[in-house]
Simulated assay, not measured.
Amino acid sequence: SKVADTYIAVDGDNKSEAVSTKLHSRQVWKSLDGRDGWLIEAGETSDKGITLQSDIPDSSAYNALAELPTDPDTLLQRIYRASDAVRDPAVPRDQAAFVAIGDLLFESYPPAEVGAALYKAAAKIPGVVAVNDAVDATGRHGIAIARENPVAGERTEWIFDKKTLRFLGERVVVVKAMADSPLKVGTVAHTSAITERAVVDATQQVPGQAS
C-alpha cells in the first residue's frame, strides 16, 4: 500500500506541532490465521522489516473473514455483538461498530463477497453517509462511506471501487478544530491506497517471486 499521515508531535518544551510524512510504501504479510506476519514500511522500519507475530487470533485474517456471513444485516448484527464485547463505554456504539468494520477492511484479503458485504453493512450504521466521488492516496476515484467522529473531530472515509466494491483505501480528515491542537480543519490526517493484494507462499515473498 501507499500511506501518508499528519500527526501531532510534542517537543522537549511540551510544545505541539503538526508533522506530515510523505506518501510512502508499506508492505504487510499475514498468515491465514493471523498469528504470523511481517511489516516493511519505508521510513518506519529497517529495510528488513519487523515481525508481527502474535498469540492473539486476528479477526482480519483470511480464515476469520472467510467465515463471516455475506448478508449485510446478519453481518452487521455480528459486528455489533463483537464490538460491544470490547467497546469502551465512552465510545458510542455506532462509532465502535464503524471502526470495527474498518479494522476488517484495511490490510486484509477478504473473499470478494465478504468485502462487498462489509461495505453494505457499514452503510447501514446510523450516521454513515455515502460519498459519490472519493479519491484514494494514489488518485484513484471510487465511492466511499464516511462517518464523523465528533469526539476526535475527524471524518473517516473508506473508499471502494464503484463496480466491484473492492476496498481501495482510507482517508481521514479533520472536520472540527480541537482545543490546543495544531491540526486545522481540512487537514488530511491519514490517506492510504491498497495497490496490490495477493496470496504468496511465504512471509516477505512478493507476488511473482519464486518460492
Rank of each mutant, 00 (worst) to 15 (best):
K2E: 15
A4G: 08
D5E: 13
Y7H: 11
Y7L: 11
Y7D: 10
A9N: 11
D13E: 15
K15V: 15
S16L: 06
E17K: 11
V19N: 02
V19I: 08
T21P: 07
K22F: 02
H24W: 09
W29P: 04
S31G: 13
G34P: 01
R35E: 08
D36N: 04
D36S: 07
G37Q: 04
I40F: 10
D47V: 14
D47T: 13
G49K: 10
S54M: 05
S54D: 10
S54L: 06
P57G: 09
D58C: 03
S59W: 02
S60R: 12
S60I: 04
Y62F: 14
A64N: 11
L65H: 09
L68C: 14
P69K: 10
L76Q: 15
Q77N: 14
Q77V: 13
R78D: 14
I79R: 01
V86H: 08
V86S: 14
P92C: 03
R93G: 03
A100L: 01
I101S: 06
G102E: 02
G102Y: 03
D103K: 05
E107P: 06
P110N: 11
G115M: 06
A117P: 05
A117F: 04
Y119S: 06
K120Q: 13
K120G: 02
A123S: 14
I125K: 10
A130D: 12
V131L: 10
D133G: 06
A137V: 08
T138K: 06
G139C: 13
A144G: 14
A146L: 09
A146R: 07
F160W: 09
D161L: 06
K162D: 15
K163T: 15
L165V: 06
R166E: 12
V173T: 15
V173A: 01
V173W: 09
V174M: 12
P182H: 04
L183I: 10
L183C: 05
K184H: 12
A189P: 10
T191L: 01
T191D: 00
I194L: 01
T195Q: 01
E196C: 00
Q205I: 01
V206F: 00
P207T: 01
S211L: 02
